[in-house]
Simulated scan of single mutants.
Amino acid sequence: MPTITTNDGVRLHCDDEGEGRPVLLVPGYGAGADDWALQWAPLRAAGHRVISLDPRWQGRSGRPAWGQRIARRGKDLDDLITALDLRGAVAVGQSMGASTVWAYVSLFGCGRLAGIVTVDQTPKMVNSPDWPYGFYGLTDGNLGTFFGTSDWFATGRGRSWPDPAELDAALKAAGGRGAGNLITPETLPLLLDHSRQDWRDTVARADVPVLITAGAESQFWPAEHAAATAALNPGADSTVFEGAGHTAHLDRPDAVSACLVAFVASL
């Protein structure tokens, strides 16, 4: 389990096993590397080196009193990729992890990447006349207060969230430490910064193959965001996982794993 230190002095942990093309898995808000445990075995069996990141303030990584913004997360990803000397990697981000990948690409380009996969993350969370695929109910008018309550994730849309006990058991059986989610008041500025971003121009400029995926029953936004996002880049494609919500990699782990394996094999 490598530990690297970012250029602002924060220790980041990751799981790193297997050989072959690196597949870098970045979890969403509050989740740790173990959130990807159900994808580890299929990716390793397909002959890939699988690296799962604990972002700062998540999992086993450091929790500094600074850096609660997506741009910093993008730099953290660069520090990890550089420290591990990853080349030809496939970056896979779920939810905020996808925004982390786009922040990295915006800052550093795709020179060390062979491909990008996002799992149920719209590139623009604020709804607008030209983008009706944002977070349900989120507009410029309520952006400042929308995430200030403890139940912002209870949209009343999509499928039910995974049962915590069942998910914990499944992740442990797959070799992870179980389910964990560290959402604290200290990370609210990160969530707000995340919600303000618009990555459409970054998606359009990515010069490696891109796959945008969505959960058909996402609790946060319409699944149509996947096709609309892929349409921004001629090198992008999209797919929708039926029977899956926002955490498609947990709701339909076999389907997501197979999709990732096929995408990497196509490069």
Rank of each mutant, 00 (worst) to 15 (best):
T3W: 11
I4D: 12
R11F: 09
R21K: 12
R21C: 07
P22A: 09
V23T: 05
P27I: 04
G30I: 05
D35T: 14
W36D: 00
A37P: 08
Q39V: 02
W40C: 03
A41S: 12
A46D: 08
A46G: 12
A46L: 11
H48M: 10
H48Q: 10
V50C: 07
V50N: 02
P55E: 10
P55W: 05
R56A: 09
R56Q: 05
W57K: 05
R60P: 02
G62V: 08
G62C: 06
R63T: 15
P64V: 07
A71F: 06
R73F: 11
G74T: 08
D78M: 11
D79K: 07
D79H: 09
I81R: 11
I81Y: 07
D85K: 13
A89G: 07
V92M: 06
G93I: 00
G109L: 02
C110N: 14
G111S: 06
R112S: 15
L113Y: 05
L113K: 04
A114C: 07
G115F: 01
I116W: 01
V117Y: 00
V117N: 00
V117E: 00
V119R: 00
D120V: 01
K124M: 12
V126K: 09
N127I: 05
S128C: 10
S128W: 03
W131L: 04
G134N: 06
F135E: 02
G137Q: 11
L138W: 05
G141T: 11
G144E: 15
F147Y: 14
F147T: 03
F153R: 14
G156W: 10
G158H: 06
R159C: 13
S160E: 14
S160P: 07
P162L: 06
P162N: 09
D163M: 09
P164G: 06
A165M: 11
A170D: 04
L171N: 04
N181F: 12
R196T: 11
R196H: 10
Q197C: 15
A204N: 08
A204Y: 08
V208Q: 02
T213D: 00
G215L: 05
G215V: 03
E217G: 10
Q219M: 09
F220E: 04
E224Q: 13
H225S: 03
H225E: 01
A227D: 12
A228D: 02
A230H: 02
A231F: 01
L232S: 07
L232A: 07
T239C: 05
E242S: 15
A244H: 02
H246M: 04
L250Y: 09
R252E: 15
S257L: 01
C259P: 07
